[in-house]
Design a protein around this nucleic acid. Structure first.
Length: 327
DNA sequence: AATAGTCCCAACCGCCGGAGT
DNA sequence: CACTCCGGCGGTTGGGACTAT
């Protein structure tokens, strides 16, 4: 992976867009870590988000970007992407001053209009099967696309829903110009793109809750998921099958037990089950609310820092923000 | 470094029930 | 009542990521 240093010129460009009251800019580097490069406000609410793609990405997911807006009560009105991917045709926002002679730096405005022109975000990695199929399909028309969603499709879907809301999914797919089934769009939105989808590892509390609810309800994943805000049935199902079921097969003692026992107030199974048997408390369990004020995470401030935000940090931000805005 | 094996999860498939006609 | 359409659900799987050899 070739790392491209962020030049001062880029910083100036970014800074020129950070005059907005609620605005932030990030560098997303190849290690899935976010470097905050121009944070002017506590990262609780963004109207504009600027993300600089730093380095080379073979496989990048839009969910990485949406970790930013989901920490705010509303989606940002604009999302800028600064990308060192070669840009054709030249963007009016294009900056110069080489970062690399081969790769221009593009500033792409992702306008929330329903019609989205092709951005320069085509990643090399997706150039093979998926996009070839897309091209072929455009010739043959009508053949519905399957398989992994591209960033373009994600953006189209997000833009469309943010402007028109959810509706009849088949109509939505047609109206948005997505060559996908309504089912596919629904699934993608609900399991992945929806702003309130919570990501990150399943916590000990969530694991306990999943096990308890599964004991009660069986494989009713969607029902179980409703008790874990932000978690999808698909995620819980996968988690169960790949972790819990596997361990059960191996007849290994669940490692959560030792951790649970280490937690004050949860010294044995009875206590845990008692706690879980009250739905009202389930909410408090998963949201981490144990009484007392909610501690918002501390964010780096104004000037440029080298502070690295990992995905974990952002997940923490998101959950804290969720709690904050629910007050 | 190369290969094989394993893990994980996004996305698909098929079925079902409800709503509308 | 029968049919169609659609959304929701649970089961399954392809393939990329990761780990072990």
């Amino acid at each position: 992976m070739m790392e491209i240093p962020i030049s001062v010129d880029v910083m100036e460009t970014v800074s020129s867009f950070t005059h907005h009251k609620y605005c932030s800019a990030f560098v997303l580097n190849g290690n899935n870590a976010f470097t905050n490069i121009a944070l002017h406000q506590p990262a609780m609410s963004f109207d504009i988000a600027i993300i600089v793609l730093h380095g080379h990405f073979d496989n990048i997911s839009l969910s990485n970007f949406f970790l930013l807006p989901i920490s705010s009560p509303k989606a940002p009105s604009h999302l800028f992407l600064l990308s060192p991917i070669p840009c054709l045709p030249p963007s009016p926002y294009k900056t110069h001053r080489n970062i690399n002679s081969d790769s221009s730096l593009c500033l792409t405005l992702l306008d929330p209009s329903p019609v989205l022109s092709l951005s320069p975000l085509q990643m090399e990695g997706e150039g093979s099967v998926a996009s070839n199929k897309l091209i072929n399909d455009s010739n043959q028309e009508a053949e519905v696309r399957k398989g992994p969603w591209t960033m373009e499709e994600d953006l189209i879907l997000i833009n469309y829903i943010s402007n028109h809301g959810e509706g009849v999914w088949n109509n939505l797919a047609r109206s948005a110009g997505l060559n996908r089934t309504g089912k596919s769009c629904r699934l993608r939105w609900l399991n992945y793109l929806r702003p309130d989808v919570r990501r990150g590892n399943i916590t000990q509390q969530e694991q306990l809750l999943i096990m308890d609810l599964h004991a009660r309800w069986g494989n009713r994943w969607s029902k179980i998921a409703r008790q874990l805000p932000g978690r999808t049935d698909n995620e819980i199902k996968n988690y169960w099958r790949t972790r819990i079921q596997k361990r059960a097969k191996q007849s290994e003692p669940m490692d959560f037990r030792s951790n649970v026992e280490a937690c004050p107030g949860s010294s044995h199974d009875d206590g845990v089950n008692d706690q879980l048997s009250h739905p009202a408390e389930e909410q408090s369990i998963v949201s981490g609310g144990g009484g007392g004020g909610i501690q918002l995470p501390q964010f780096p401030c104004a000037e440029f820092t080298e502070h690295i935000w990992t995905l974990e940090d952002l997940w923490l931000m998101q959950s804290a923000a969720d709690d904050y805005y629910m007050i």
